[in-house]
Nucleic acid binder design. Structure first.
Length: 274
DNA sequence: ATTTTCTCCTGCATGC
DNA sequence: TGCATGCAGGAGAAAA
């Protein structure tokens, strides 16, 4: 369940693990598919290509080469780690990404993650457009107060669903949607078009604060980074409402509720959030 | 056209 | 102990 902060932490971890100027050797799949077929045909294209950089857009990771980008999405349970010859492979290891001096292993028990190959004829911007990706939440020039208010005007769906819609803003999943709505004092089931301008503005700030704090929390543990694991980022961050059903709200002690909204468990304080 | 529901998948908790 | 059931959810397809 990595959301934007966790993917960002993974990106930083991978940059650390790979070091200076890594060079691809091959992409080795241990099974034919994850969520989608593993693009092993890209192995020959990747061979001897310099890794020019690792980028994150939304919850996607991009390994950049001159020939194109290898895209990695972690789904719910995907992790990358450095291959350790002494430890060997573990259950649910599905892909080996061989570099000249080291190898990365992709592990994903539930296989909701995927790898894709994006040839250099297509840009990251093309990919983002094709997938209808909204603005980056931490980019204040595109995800700003009036943007969210304007965008929410015609939406009858709940503000939480609206917030989790990647076309609205990317990177906000179930956990951070709950946290941001608590911070903004907005009930998750409230229709998006019912938000006042002031509340919409508050929500933008809340999203940015929650995500920035989460990245900071994950980043603080980067010194003892053992594996670039999405789940690791979570334990540093304490949630105000997520997973706290029945426990007292930190602000008013009212028991936190868990209501299913649009098929997702939604934690909120019935008193602090209106 | 917009919005909700379903599907994918495994691990874990719960209940009988 | 063992088996069935339900739940978790990102993204995209399918259905409403």
């Amino acid at each position: 369940m990595p959301e934007l902060p966790e993917v960002e932490i993974v990106k930083q971890g991978l940059e650390r693990l790979l070091g200076e100027k890594p060079r691809f050797r091959k992409l080795e799949a241990l099974r034919p598919d994850l969520r989608f077929p593993i693009p092993t045909y890209a192995s020959d294209i990747l061979a001897n290509q310099d890794l020019l950089g690792i980028h994150r857009r939304a919850k996607y990771l991009f390994f950049e080469t001159k020939q194109g980008h290898l895209i990695s999405h972690l789904g719910m349970t995907g992790t990358w780690r450095l291959y350790d010859r002494r430890q060997g492979l573990r259950p649910h290891d599905h892909v080996l990404l061989h570099f000249a001096k080291k190898t990365l292993v992709y592990n994903d028990p539930r296989r909701f993650g995927f790898l894709q190959w994006l040839p250099a004829t297509q840009s990251l911007r093309d990919y983002a457009a094709a997938h209808k990706l909204g603005p980056e939440p931490l980019d204040t020039s595109s995800f700003h107060r009036d943007y969210l208010w304007q965008k929410s005007r015609a939406k009858k769906q709940s503000i939480k669903s609206f917030l989790m819609d990647q076309a609205t803003v990317v990177g906000v999943g179930n956990i951070y949607a709950a946290e941001a709505l608590f911070l903004a004092g907005i009930q998750p089931q409230r229709p998006a078009h019912n938000l006042s301008k002031d509340r919409a503005h508050r929500l933008v700030t809340a999203v940015q604060e929650v995500l920035a704090a989460a990245i900071l929390a994950g980043g603080s543990s980067i010194s003892d980074y053992k594996q670039a694991s999405g789940e690791k980022g979570y334990f540093q961050m304490q949630f105000k409402v997520y997973g706290r059903e029945g426990l007292g709200c930190y602000q008013c002690a009212t028991p936190i509720r868990n209501k299913v909204i649009a098929g997702r468990s939604s934690f909120y304080c019935p008193r602090c959030q209106r």
